[in-house]
Design a protein around this nucleic acid. Sequence first.
DNA 1: CCGTATCCTAAAGGATACTG
DNA 2: CAGTATCCTTTAGGATACGG
Lengths: 123, 123
Amino acid sequence: MEICPVTRFAANCPLRVLFDQIADKWSMMVLAVLESGPLRFNAVKRQLEGVTQKALTQCLRRLERNGLITRRVLPASPIAVEYELTPLGRSLQDPFKALYLWTVASLPQVELARQAFDERIAA
Amino acid sequence: MEICPVTRFAANCPLRVLFDQIADKWSMMVLAVLESGPLRFNAVKRQLEGVTQKALTQCLRRLERNGLITRRVLPASPIAVEYELTPLGRSLQDPFKALYLWTVASLPQVELARQAFDERIAA
DNA sequence: CCGTATCCTAAAGGATACTG
DNA sequence: CAGTATCCTTTAGGATACGG
Protein backbone atom coordinates (compact mmCIF):
# COMPACT_ATOMS: atom_id res chain seq x y z
CA MET A 1 0.00 0.00 0.00
CA GLU A 2 1.17 3.48 -0.82
CA ILE A 3 1.08 5.94 2.00
CA CYS A 4 -0.25 9.41 1.22
CA PRO A 5 -0.02 8.99 -2.55
CA VAL A 6 -0.08 11.73 -5.21
CA THR A 7 1.00 14.81 -3.25
CA ARG A 8 2.86 12.86 -0.63
CA PHE A 9 2.48 14.35 2.79
CA ALA A 10 0.63 17.46 1.91
CA ALA A 11 -0.22 19.44 5.00
CA ASN A 12 -3.77 18.11 5.03
CA CYS A 13 -3.17 14.38 4.70
CA PRO A 14 -4.77 12.27 7.46
CA LEU A 15 -1.43 11.46 8.94
CA ARG A 16 -0.57 15.07 9.55
CA VAL A 17 -4.05 16.04 10.72
CA LEU A 18 -4.34 13.24 13.26
CA PHE A 19 -0.94 11.68 13.88
CA ASP A 20 0.47 14.77 15.53
CA GLN A 21 -2.31 14.64 18.07
CA ILE A 22 -1.67 11.11 19.25
CA ALA A 23 2.08 10.87 18.83
CA ASP A 24 3.03 13.26 21.59
CA LYS A 25 4.93 12.43 24.74
CA TRP A 26 2.00 11.12 26.82
CA SER A 27 -1.09 10.27 24.76
CA MET A 28 -0.17 6.71 23.96
CA MET A 29 0.60 5.99 27.58
CA VAL A 30 -2.66 7.46 28.78
CA LEU A 31 -4.58 5.25 26.38
CA ALA A 32 -2.67 2.21 27.57
CA VAL A 33 -3.27 3.04 31.21
CA LEU A 34 -7.00 3.37 30.59
CA GLU A 35 -7.17 0.05 28.82
CA SER A 36 -8.28 -1.93 31.86
CA GLY A 37 -11.08 0.44 32.78
CA PRO A 38 -11.99 4.00 33.79
CA LEU A 39 -9.60 5.83 36.08
CA ARG A 40 -9.55 9.08 37.97
CA PHE A 41 -7.16 11.91 37.23
CA ASN A 42 -4.61 11.16 39.90
CA ALA A 43 -4.79 7.44 39.27
CA VAL A 44 -3.64 8.10 35.72
CA LYS A 45 -1.05 10.56 36.89
CA ARG A 46 0.53 8.11 39.30
CA GLN A 47 1.32 5.69 36.50
CA LEU A 48 3.10 8.18 34.27
CA GLU A 49 6.42 8.90 35.88
CA GLY A 50 7.36 12.54 35.59
CA VAL A 51 4.19 13.93 34.06
CA THR A 52 3.10 17.27 35.46
CA GLN A 53 -0.49 18.15 36.23
CA LYS A 54 -0.50 20.73 33.48
CA ALA A 55 0.84 18.37 30.84
CA LEU A 56 -1.57 15.62 31.79
CA THR A 57 -4.55 17.97 31.78
CA GLN A 58 -3.67 19.21 28.30
CA CYS A 59 -3.18 15.67 27.08
CA LEU A 60 -6.50 14.47 28.47
CA ARG A 61 -8.30 17.44 26.92
CA ARG A 62 -6.82 16.72 23.53
CA LEU A 63 -7.74 13.05 23.71
CA GLU A 64 -11.24 14.02 24.76
CA ARG A 65 -11.53 16.53 21.93
CA ASN A 66 -10.49 13.90 19.41
CA GLY A 67 -13.09 11.50 20.75
CA LEU A 68 -10.66 8.94 22.15
CA ILE A 69 -11.66 9.27 25.79
CA THR A 70 -14.60 10.62 27.76
CA ARG A 71 -14.51 12.78 30.84
CA ARG A 72 -17.17 12.31 33.51
CA VAL A 73 -17.55 14.35 36.67
CA LEU A 74 -18.73 12.17 39.52
CA PRO A 75 -21.20 13.58 42.07
CA ALA A 76 -18.77 13.60 44.97
CA SER A 77 -17.06 16.00 47.29
CA PRO A 78 -14.26 16.75 46.92
CA ILE A 79 -14.67 16.61 43.18
CA ALA A 80 -13.92 13.35 41.39
CA VAL A 81 -13.44 12.93 37.65
CA GLU A 82 -13.32 9.72 35.72
CA TYR A 83 -11.66 9.20 32.34
CA GLU A 84 -12.63 6.32 30.13
CA LEU A 85 -11.74 5.01 26.68
CA THR A 86 -14.28 5.37 23.91
CA PRO A 87 -14.65 2.56 21.36
CA LEU A 88 -12.60 4.73 19.00
CA GLY A 89 -9.89 5.09 21.61
CA ARG A 90 -9.95 1.37 22.16
CA SER A 91 -9.57 0.75 18.43
CA LEU A 92 -6.26 2.60 18.49
CA GLN A 93 -4.72 0.12 20.85
CA ASP A 94 -4.02 -2.59 18.33
CA PRO A 95 -1.86 -0.42 16.08
CA PHE A 96 -0.26 1.06 19.15
CA LYS A 97 0.66 -2.33 20.52
CA ALA A 98 2.27 -3.27 17.23
CA LEU A 99 4.43 -0.20 17.61
CA TYR A 100 5.20 -1.03 21.21
CA LEU A 101 6.29 -4.55 20.28
CA TRP A 102 8.52 -3.06 17.63
CA THR A 103 10.22 -0.75 20.13
CA VAL A 104 10.82 -3.62 22.55
CA ALA A 105 12.22 -5.84 19.83
CA SER A 106 14.33 -3.12 18.22
CA LEU A 107 15.73 -1.26 21.19
CA PRO A 108 18.92 -3.37 21.51
CA GLN A 109 19.76 -2.81 17.87
CA VAL A 110 18.98 0.88 18.16
CA GLU A 111 21.26 1.25 21.16
CA LEU A 112 24.12 -0.33 19.25
CA ALA A 113 23.53 2.06 16.38
CA ARG A 114 23.53 5.02 18.74
CA GLN A 115 26.83 3.94 20.25
CA ALA A 116 28.44 3.50 16.86
CA PHE A 117 27.17 6.87 15.68
CA ASP A 118 28.28 8.72 18.77
CA GLU A 119 31.74 7.21 18.62
CA ARG A 120 32.03 8.05 14.96
CA ILE A 121 31.24 11.74 15.40
CA ALA A 122 33.47 11.97 18.47
CA ALA A 123 36.43 10.91 16.35
CA MET B 1 -0.43 -8.17 26.33
CA GLU B 2 0.35 -5.72 29.07
CA ILE B 3 2.28 -2.68 28.03
CA CYS B 4 5.14 -1.64 30.30
CA PRO B 5 4.01 -3.80 33.23
CA VAL B 6 5.08 -3.44 36.87
CA THR B 7 6.16 0.21 37.07
CA ARG B 8 4.03 1.35 34.19
CA PHE B 9 5.76 3.91 32.07
CA ALA B 10 8.80 4.48 34.13
CA ALA B 11 11.11 6.94 32.48
CA ASN B 12 13.31 4.18 31.11
CA CYS B 13 10.75 1.89 29.49
CA PRO B 14 11.40 1.12 25.80
CA LEU B 15 8.46 3.18 24.73
CA ARG B 16 9.84 6.32 26.27
CA VAL B 17 13.42 5.70 25.22
CA LEU B 18 12.59 5.04 21.58
CA PHE B 19 9.08 6.19 20.81
CA ASP B 20 9.88 9.86 21.31
CA GLN B 21 12.55 9.59 18.64
CA ILE B 22 10.30 8.26 15.93
CA ALA B 23 7.01 9.93 16.79
CA ASP B 24 8.01 13.46 15.93
CA LYS B 25 6.55 15.62 13.22
CA TRP B 26 8.59 14.28 10.29
CA SER B 27 10.33 10.96 11.00
CA MET B 28 7.50 8.69 9.95
CA MET B 29 7.07 10.56 6.70
CA VAL B 30 10.75 10.38 5.91
CA LEU B 31 10.73 6.63 6.40
CA ALA B 32 7.69 6.30 4.17
CA VAL B 33 9.24 8.45 1.45
CA LEU B 34 12.39 6.31 1.47
CA GLU B 35 10.42 3.11 1.17
CA SER B 36 10.75 2.83 -2.59
CA GLY B 37 14.50 3.35 -2.62
CA PRO B 38 17.37 5.71 -1.75
CA LEU B 39 16.81 9.40 -2.26
CA ARG B 40 18.84 12.56 -2.11
CA PHE B 41 18.29 15.31 0.40
CA ASN B 42 16.24 17.62 -1.76
CA ALA B 43 14.26 14.76 -3.22
CA VAL B 44 13.07 13.94 0.28
CA LYS B 45 12.48 17.56 1.07
CA ARG B 46 10.26 18.11 -1.96
CA GLN B 47 7.82 15.46 -0.73
CA LEU B 48 7.35 16.89 2.72
CA GLU B 49 5.27 20.01 2.37
CA GLY B 50 6.42 22.73 4.71
CA VAL B 51 9.54 21.12 6.13
CA THR B 52 12.50 23.44 6.51
CA GLN B 53 16.04 22.48 5.69
CA LYS B 54 17.01 22.71 9.32
CA ALA B 55 14.18 20.50 10.53
CA LEU B 56 14.83 17.89 7.87
CA THR B 57 18.54 17.81 8.57
CA GLN B 58 17.92 17.26 12.27
CA CYS B 59 15.38 14.58 11.53
CA LEU B 60 17.68 12.72 9.15
CA ARG B 61 20.50 12.87 11.68
CA ARG B 62 18.35 11.40 14.40
CA LEU B 63 17.12 8.61 12.15
CA GLU B 64 20.70 7.89 11.17
CA ARG B 65 21.83 7.86 14.78
CA ASN B 66 19.09 5.39 15.69
CA GLY B 67 20.14 3.12 12.86
CA LEU B 68 16.99 3.51 10.79
CA ILE B 69 18.61 5.10 7.74
CA THR B 70 22.10 5.41 6.28
CA ARG B 71 23.74 8.49 4.85
CA ARG B 72 26.10 8.16 1.92
CA VAL B 73 28.08 10.94 0.28
CA LEU B 74 28.33 10.36 -3.45
CA PRO B 75 31.54 11.27 -5.31
CA ALA B 76 30.06 14.13 -7.29
CA SER B 77 30.33 17.85 -7.68
CA PRO B 78 28.40 19.66 -6.49
CA ILE B 79 28.05 17.39 -3.50
CA ALA B 80 25.34 14.75 -3.53
CA VAL B 81 24.08 12.78 -0.54
CA GLU B 82 21.91 9.73 -0.58
CA TYR B 83 19.69 8.51 2.24
CA GLU B 84 18.52 4.92 2.41
CA LEU B 85 16.50 2.75 4.75
CA THR B 86 18.31 0.13 6.79
CA PRO B 87 16.63 -3.25 7.37
CA LEU B 88 15.74 -1.96 10.83
CA GLY B 89 14.15 1.13 9.36
CA ARG B 90 12.28 -1.03 6.92
CA SER B 91 10.97 -3.20 9.74
CA LEU B 92 9.26 -0.17 11.24
CA GLN B 93 7.05 0.29 8.24
CA ASP B 94 4.57 -2.46 9.04
CA PRO B 95 3.60 -1.04 12.44
CA PHE B 96 3.60 2.41 10.92
CA LYS B 97 1.25 1.41 8.15
CA ALA B 98 -1.14 -0.07 10.68
CA LEU B 99 -1.20 3.30 12.34
CA TYR B 100 -1.65 5.08 9.05
CA LEU B 101 -4.60 2.89 8.15
CA TRP B 102 -6.10 3.67 11.53
CA THR B 103 -5.81 7.42 10.94
CA VAL B 104 -7.43 7.14 7.53
CA ALA B 105 -10.28 5.03 8.86
CA SER B 106 -10.81 7.10 12.00
CA LEU B 107 -10.43 10.63 10.75
CA PRO B 108 -14.13 11.17 9.92
CA GLN B 109 -15.15 10.08 13.41
CA VAL B 110 -12.44 12.22 14.97
CA GLU B 111 -13.59 15.26 13.06
CA LEU B 112 -17.12 14.81 14.30
CA ALA B 113 -15.83 14.53 17.85
CA ARG B 114 -13.80 17.70 17.44
CA GLN B 115 -16.83 19.60 16.18
CA ALA B 116 -18.98 18.41 19.06
CA PHE B 117 -16.30 19.28 21.58
CA ASP B 118 -15.66 22.73 20.18
CA GLU B 119 -19.34 23.57 20.11
CA ARG B 120 -19.74 22.34 23.63
CA ILE B 121 -17.02 24.54 25.08
CA ALA B 122 -18.18 27.52 23.01
CA ALA B 123 -21.56 27.32 24.72
C1' DC C 1 -9.56 16.36 44.32
C1' DC C 2 -9.24 18.42 39.99
C1' DG C 3 -8.32 21.62 37.89
C1' DT C 4 -7.20 27.02 36.02
C1' DA C 5 -4.18 31.15 35.91
C1' DT C 6 0.08 33.27 36.10
C1' DC C 7 4.83 33.69 35.66
C1' DC C 8 9.16 32.38 34.16
C1' DT C 9 12.60 29.68 31.82
C1' DA C 10 14.08 26.45 28.30
C1' DA C 11 13.64 24.71 24.08
C1' DA C 12 11.88 24.46 19.52
C1' DG C 13 11.47 26.52 14.99
C1' DG C 14 11.86 29.83 11.11
C1' DA C 15 14.77 33.12 8.31
C1' DT C 16 18.92 34.39 6.55
C1' DA C 17 23.68 34.21 5.31
C1' DC C 18 27.60 31.59 4.30
C1' DT C 19 30.82 27.35 2.86
C1' DG C 20 32.94 22.97 0.61
C1' DC D 1 23.75 20.51 -3.51
C1' DA D 2 23.80 19.82 1.14
C1' DG D 3 24.61 21.41 4.69
C1' DT D 4 26.41 24.69 9.14
C1' DA D 5 26.05 28.89 11.88
C1' DT D 6 23.73 32.69 13.69
C1' DC D 7 19.99 35.28 15.12
C1' DC D 8 15.52 35.88 16.54
C1' DT D 9 10.69 34.78 17.61
C1' DT D 10 7.51 31.64 19.23
C1' DT D 11 6.15 27.94 21.79
C1' DA D 12 6.39 24.39 25.19
C1' DG D 13 7.17 23.22 29.89
C1' DG D 14 7.85 23.48 34.90
C1' DA D 15 6.70 25.84 39.35
C1' DT D 16 3.67 28.06 42.12
C1' DA D 17 -0.57 29.86 43.84
C1' DC D 18 -5.32 29.79 43.99
C1' DG D 19 -10.53 28.30 43.26
C1' DG D 20 -14.85 25.20 42.70
